[in-house]
Simulated scan of single mutants.
Amino acid sequence: MATANKNCSLGRRIYRFAASVSGIIALLIILWGCTANNFNAGAIAWKTYTNSRYGFEFPYPSNWTSSTAPTNDDGIAFTSPQNKTVEIRGWASQQLPDSIVTEQKSVKKIKPNFKTAQGVPGVLVVEVAQGIGSMTLTLTQSQVKYSWQGRSNSQEFQDYYRLFYYIAQQYRISKS
């Protein structure tokens, strides 16, 4: 009976070890996929979109096509010339003062997990679903919510991850 318990215990430890190794390998494969391509920002000709209404800017590849800006001038979108499903967009909106906003206990505030090269803290969320992959940056400053997003279909998201990340890092807010 003691031998059976030892074998069972050994089997559980081997199973746990294999499960841990499998999890680590899966994580490494995911991370490798996000950094697999060699991204060189210096090899890209850049332009800068500047929003005069809200005072933000971000770089975009000079050969990307801009959409028609909305009449309220809250932002813009750019589309890749090689693949119309790949786009980057930036926009902003006024936030109500905290004293006017009703308390919502069900909504958790997400702590900043990202800083732009300018040093502005924000929240960067990467989502890869069955059809669409996206990277969304949200910054809040002086009652203005600034947003930037890069999107592609999920199968190609790893090809654009480093481009999107670079642009998110370069996002700037004018000093008021």
Results as ranks from 00 to 15, higher is better:
100 I>G: 08
95 Q>A: 02
8 C>F: 15
43 A>M: 09
58 F>Q: 01
29 I>W: 08
110 I>P: 00
79 T>H: 05
20 S>F: 14
77 A>Y: 02
2 A>Q: 11
17 F>C: 15
77 A>E: 04
64 W>Q: 05
8 C>N: 15
31 L>K: 08
149 Q>F: 02
94 Q>N: 11
38 N>D: 13
100 I>V: 11
106 S>T: 13
43 A>N: 05
39 F>W: 10
16 R>H: 14
43 A>K: 13
126 V>T: 11
31 L>Y: 08
85 T>G: 10
63 N>Y: 07
169 Q>I: 02
153 N>I: 09
59 P>T: 00
172 R>P: 02
88 I>S: 01
153 N>P: 07
30 I>L: 12
120 V>Y: 06
97 P>Y: 09
59 P>Y: 01
26 A>Q: 11
120 V>S: 03
152 S>K: 02
45 A>L: 07
129 A>Q: 07
60 Y>V: 01
69 A>L: 07
109 K>P: 06
111 K>I: 09
135 M>N: 00
150 G>T: 04
84 K>D: 13
83 N>D: 15
16 R>E: 12
170 Q>N: 13
83 N>C: 09
38 N>F: 14
10 L>A: 15
169 Q>P: 02
131 G>A: 10
64 W>S: 07
35 T>K: 12
172 R>H: 14
52 S>K: 15
38 N>S: 15
77 A>P: 02
156 E>A: 13
74 D>H: 11
1 M>T: 11
106 S>E: 14
49 Y>M: 06
100 I>T: 06
24 I>W: 06
118 Q>Y: 08
124 L>R: 02
176 S>E: 12
133 G>M: 04
8 C>A: 15
115 K>G: 04
128 V>C: 03
110 I>H: 05
29 I>Q: 08
152 S>N: 05
77 A>W: 01
117 A>W: 05
69 A>N: 10
130 Q>E: 09
77 A>C: 10
41 A>K: 09
162 R>P: 09
33 G>S: 15
137 L>E: 00
36 A>W: 08
36 A>N: 08
73 D>K: 06
16 R>V: 08
65 T>G: 08
95 Q>P: 00
103 E>K: 14
4 A>I: 15
145 K>Y: 07
100 I>Q: 15
26 A>S: 13
7 N>F: 07
26 A>M: 11
109 K>A: 14
112 P>A: 12
53 R>W: 02
35 T>N: 14
13 R>P: 06
78 F>V: 00
137 L>F: 00
76 I>N: 05
57 E>N: 13
103 E>D: 12
67 S>I: 13
54 Y>G: 00
68 T>C: 03
121 P>F: 00
88 I>V: 14
119 G>T: 09
23 G>N: 11
117 A>I: 07
93 S>R: 12
150 G>N: 01
173 I>P: 00
53 R>P: 03
52 S>E: 14
4 A>G: 02
121 P>N: 12
122 G>I: 00
132 I>K: 06
124 L>G: 00
86 V>I: 09
56 F>T: 01
75 G>P: 03
66 S>V: 01
